[in-house]
């Protein structure tokens, strides 16, 4: 059976789909060719959410970006949640499916945030087991996203880039490289974002995220960046992104703006900037899918 759904290609920039933008998007008066959603927002049985997503999927490429699996967690994966993810994957046939290197659930319940884990042999084995289980349950490879972190762990035995490389090697999953997270974490840990990106196993990268961050000054005078997703992408992050694409070539790039969400044209403008970078470095000169 031929797949006639629109597909995401390497040299395309997308944005997160927000229901308040549905009319503007479906009018079609823009250049965005794909959208990303959190599958957790589409786990009801029916109504408006599925109606919108079904309509969207007819015309645009789709990426599912999970937040609730707790892949880095020490509790078993939630089987019902996995089943719901598998059902959404079968129903909407997304081109990209991703989750986070983080945990969110423990005995207390689901904490609705992306919490950090140390990088040790034990956590590596646990994460790989979970990813094997996810890929088996959903029936496709997933992309794992590098986290924004505010603390480090004394227990860690390896670098985050080595940890991610080992996971990709062992499980066959891909990686989602969030350039804003790289910048936020590097600033917070007083390390170099450029060094991190140079060490990143880029051959596994299937998608890139860009987003905005907030800044607070701690009582000891140090700056802490917060992965707020509430504003435009910052200049240093654009610079890192341009250098990255220049090095590795185009990858599907998503602009994340989840809080204080602006009107659609502003969001589309951010994506257009990413699109321009992708075009500049595309050997095929930005071959685009016509929706």
């Amino acid at each position: 059976m031929m797949n006639t759904l629109p597909m995401i290609t390497d040299a395309q920039a997308g944005v997160g789909f927000k229901p308040q933008h549905a009319n503007a998007i479906l009018k079609g008066d823009h250049e965005i060719s794909w959208f990303e959603v959190h599958p957790e927002n589409y786990m009801g049985e029916g109504g408006m959410p599925h109606r919108l997503l079904t309509e969207l999927r007819q015309h645009y490429g789709l990426s599912l970006h999970g937040v609730g699996l707790s892949i880095g967690g020490q509790t078993p994966l939630n089987k019902e949640h996995l089943a719901r993810l598998a059902a959404l994957n079968a129903r909407y046939e997304p081109d990209l499916f991703s989750e986070h290197l983080a945990w969110s659930s423990h005995d207390e319940g689901y904490l609705n945030d992306l919490l950090p884990l140390p990088y040790t042999q034990a956590t590596l084995d646990l994460v790989c087991d979970h990813i094997d289980e996810v890929q088996e349950a959903i029936g496709r490879p997933i992309l794992l996203e590098n986290p924004s972190t505010y603390v480090v762990f004394e227990q860690s035995q390896m670098s985050e880039t080595n940890f991610l490389a080992a996971i990709a090697r062992r499980t066959g999953c891909g990686l989602l490289l969030d350039v804003n997270n790289v910048f936020v974490s590097a600033t917070n840990h007083q390390t170099s974002a450029e060094v991190y990106l140079a060490a990143f196993p880029v051959h596994h990268v299937g998608e890139i995220h860009l987003a905005g961050h907030a800044s607070v000054t701690l009582s000891d005078g140090a700056e802490l960046l917060i992965d707020a997703h509430d504003r435009a992408v910052s200049d240093p992050v654009w610079a890192l992104y341009e250098a990255l694409i220049g090095r590795i070539g185009p990858r599907p790039t998503l602009v994340e703006w989840d809080n204080d969400v602006p009107d659609f044209p502003i969001l589309a403008h951010e994506a257009a900037q990413a699109q321009a970078v992708l075009r500049r470095h595309d050997p095929l000169l930005g071959r685009r899918h016509v929706a």
Binding site: G73, Q74, T75, W103, H106, D107, E108, L111, D113, L115, L117, P118, T120, A122, T123, V151, V152, F153, E154, Q155, N188, H189, Q190, T191, D220, A222
Partner: peptide, 30 residues
């Protein structure tokens, strides 16, 4: 290892608890 997330989760929900052991910042800061 087995107790790491428990201490972290409990401390996240209770501002009275201490920061879990092993959690650190760069350059030995608080």
């Amino acid at each position: 290892e087995g107790h790491h997330h428990s201490a972290f989760a409990a401390a996240v929900l209770d501002p009275e608890r201490a920061v879990p052991e092993g959690v650190a910042r760069a350059n030995g800061r608080d």
